[in-house]
């Protein structure tokens, strides 16, 4: 059955990766599993949301509603924290998540330049996902690798000394699927 926002997306001809996020059934299944593991207590809201996002990649609206009803609170009490904390996303991420570090050292040494380069290269703005859902672009406050500034986290791999040329290299490595952005090796 195709329905709701997922249905619309599938009908619009989104890529096959959509299916791994699943429809409402998958969401409910996931929520139930997570609730069983962590306990349906109001106090556990943040770990619950973290776990759901870990499994679904983001927090779909139906998921937040399900959690709210399981905890017996109005949906706004789930939606509030989901939008308050930076770690949660309400939209599906790209296959490859690029996070540009905006710590002090990174910013001063060229983090903004790296971010501009990604925006230009992927033709999206900070916080957005490419239309083919391959890449999403975010910033993080500081990953604590200041000596390697400017730093970019690509799919949980930390890349150091990211110049605009390296930005091209990172994206190219995905486009050609030669290697998935190996650790930075240049001097």
């Amino acid at each position: 059955m195709i329905s709701g926002i997922f249905g619309e997306m599938i009908l619009k001809g989104m890529s096959a990766t959509m299916f791994k996020e699943g429809g409402r059934e998958t969401i409910i299944e996931t929520i139930n599993a997570v609730l069983a593991e962590h306990g349906a207590r109001r106090e556990n809201l943040i770990p619950l949301l973290q776990e759901v996002q870990e499994r679904l990649g983001y927090l779909p609206k139906p998921a937040m509603e399900e959690i709210a009803s399981a905890l017996g609170v109005p949906a706004v009490e789930v939606y509030g924290p989901a939008t308050f904390y930076n770690a949660f996303r309400l939209h599906p991420p790209g296959d490859h998540q690029i996070k540009v570090c905006m710590g002090t050292a990174c910013f001063m040494i060229g983090g903004q330049i790296a971010l501009d380069s990604f925006e230009r290269r992927l033709k999206i703005k900070l916080g957005e996902t490419t239309p083919d859902r391959r890449f999403s672009l975010d910033q993080v406050a500081c990953v604590g690798c200041c000596a390697l500034a400017p730093v970019v986290v690509v799919d949980n791999l930390v890349e150091g000394h990211v110049t605009p040329t390296r930005v091209d290299g990172i994206i190219l490595s995905f486009e050609t699927q030669q290697g998935d952005g190996k650790g930075e090796q240049e001097a």
Partner: peptide
């Protein structure tokens, strides 16, 4: 540690 890994410690 995270910084070592980023510099290529795993390789």
């Amino acid at each position: 540690a995270t910084c070592g890994k980023a510099a290529g410690a795993l390789e």
